[in-house]
Nucleic acid binder design. Structure first.
Length: 473
RNA sequence: GUCCCCAUCGUCUAGCCUGGCCUAGGACGCCGGCCUUUCAAGCCGGCAACACGGGUUCAAAUCCCGUUGGGGACGCCA
């Protein structure tokens, strides 16, 4: 294990979303590639917005996509003592001071400054008051450097320089005693020996505020990497308006976690022209050098294509195993128990190429369960007509008489009927298809028969014949 | 408003660092064709981009400057 340590630090204020997963993924890939440590840390210092439910949702999402963590999940609310102690240390060093401005006053002043077109930063009026023992509500502010520059050699953006004159005296301890984000993140990253802070580039301007705190506290400054944002189709930050953003929503829609990972990895990162990567390849080939600097638009259609690819090319056993819960959810629990794993895999293989999600796959798979099949009205009306009865009957008799129930033999019988009846392939195939699957579209007929087996094939054929006979005339 | 980041087909991107191999490549989507028992899948083909303006250079998608456009940050949110 190397000394490389990275973390994913979501705040539990909602579900784990796509952007968070990608940030986590890049951290995870970097850790795994370097035999480093991947840490999960929950940033829940905002009591009013953090929920236990969100924490659980984050863990569930992480597990689903297979991003396993080596340490944590730590929760910042369990580390309060650490933040307070570090804050007091800064105070004692003269690097922090008590501010007795009220929140409403600050808000008002900010608005006023903004209205005048001035910078809305804190005016520093408590900076030199020298308050040592505040009474009532007071917040602790970090005394930010005002001169010189802070330079970041970003793993992705390259060299970024900020004038310290733009820096604000940030509140590090709220009047309720809780630390604020910019402070707790520094204390934790320092104490957890984080070597590389990889996060969304919405944090880029937070970085020059944090670096002086690492320095004031006497901790080494980690390296930073700022990932570009993921945007919606209208090029604004991805949000609910753009459709599903919760990672678990994609599970529900029938996406494979390996497809999500592959798509998200390729969103903002590339390795030449390669589109499909195994998890091992991702770990091996990932590099910050090839992470895009600019933001990327989330494209659900490409995601769907990647998912279809995994469904169509994955190991049948893997797809079958992933499909089962969806089948169960569709009310086929008992039916699944009755079939073998081997049969289920054959089913997957025959239906998967017309399927882009597992949910879609359920729709294609249902006709193969149970003795009878629900026949779509429209399909029956069009293909199960009295005129086709002789041919259907002849086919049924032929199959009954066949010694062997194999695809090759079945086709021979079928073609024999075609010839005797003077029919074209499609003229008989469609009625048979409807009788067997209840629909006008299905996999190849002989695959269907093989999947159904002799008994059900004959049974459904018979039902089809009866229905065709009864149709008007 | 101030600061920061970014800019190649509609979208994801290769190429940019180390200028010529770029008549700018791949992928998704779209359009057309082939295959075909249906629906798909597959295969073949097509449409489609270096934001703009100046430089530097024999030569610029590639280097420099500016403009424009987009995004982000400026909270006792994270």
């Amino acid at each position: 294990m190397s000394n490389i340590r990275v973390r994913f630090a979501p705040s539990p204020t909602g579900y784990l979303h796509i952007g968070g997963v990608r940030t986590a993924l890049f951290n995870w890939l970097f850790a795994r590639q370097n035999k480093g440590t991947f840490i999960l840390r929950i940033e829940d210092t905002d009591q009013s917005r953090s929920t236990e439910e969100s924490i659980q949702a984050i863990l569930e999402g992480m597990r689903w996509v297979g991003l396993d963590w080596d340490e944590g999940p730590y929760r910042q609310t369990e580390r309060m003592e650490l933040y307070r102690r570090h804050a007091m240390r800064l105070f004692e060093q003269g690097r922090a001071y008590w501010c007795i401005c009220r929140a409403e006053e600050l808000e008002a002043r900010r608005k006023e400054a903004e209205a005048k077109g001035l910078s809305p930063k804190y005016d520093g009026r408590c900076r030199d008051l020298g308050i040592t023992a505040p009474t009532g509500d007071a917040a602790l502010r970090f005394r930010a450097p005002q001169e010189g520059q802070t330079v970041i050699d970003d793993l992705i953006k390259g060299r970024v320089v900020f004038d310290n004159s733009v820096l604000d005296d940030l509140i590090i301890l709220r009047s309720n005693g809780y630390p604020t984000y910019n402070f707790s993140v520094v204390v934790d990253d320092a104490l957890m020996n984080i070597t590389h802070v990889v996060r969304g580039d919405d944090h880029l301007t937070n970085t020059p505020r944090q670096i002086p705190m690492f320095q004031a506290l006497g901790y080494p400054v980690p390296r930073f990497g700022h990932l570009p944002m993921i945007l919606g189709s209208d090029k604004t930050r991805l949000s609910k308006r753009h459709g599903a953003t919760s990672i678990m929503a994609y599970k529900e829609m029938g996406y494979l976690p390996e497809a999500m990972v592959n798509y998200l990895a390729r969103l903002g990162w590339s390795h030449g022209d390669q589109e499909i990567f195994t998890r091992e390849e991702l770990i091996e080939k990932f590099s910050f050098d090839h992470v895009q600097k600019s933001s990327a638009v989330f494209n659900p259609e490409k995601l769907l294509w990647v998912n279809a690819h995994y469904i169509q090319h994955g190991a049948p056993s893997r797809i079958a195993q992933a499909l089962v819960p969806y089948l169960e959810q569709a009310g086929l629990k008992e039916e699944i128990k009755a079939v073998s794993a081997e049969w289920l895999e054959r089913l997957v293989v025959t239906v998967r190429e017309r399927t882009k999600t597992l949910v879609e796959m359920v729709t294609w798979a249902t006709p193969y369960f149970g003795q009878d099949v629900a026949v779509e009205e429209e399909a029956a009306k069009k293909f199960l007509t009295p005129a086709i009865v002789p041919a259907l009957t002849k086919l049924k008799v032929g199959i009954e008489g066949a010694v062997e129930f194999s695809k090759a033999r079945l086709e021979e019988v079928f073609r024999g009927v075609l010839e005797e009846e003077g029919l074209k392939m499609a003229q008989l195939a469609q009625p048979v298809r409807v009788a067997l699957t209840g629909r006008a579209a299905s996999p190849g007929l002989f695959d269907v028969m093989e999947l159904l087996g002799r008994e059900r094939t004959l049974h459904r054929l018979q039902k089809g014949i009866e229905r065709a006979k009864a149709a008007l005339s």
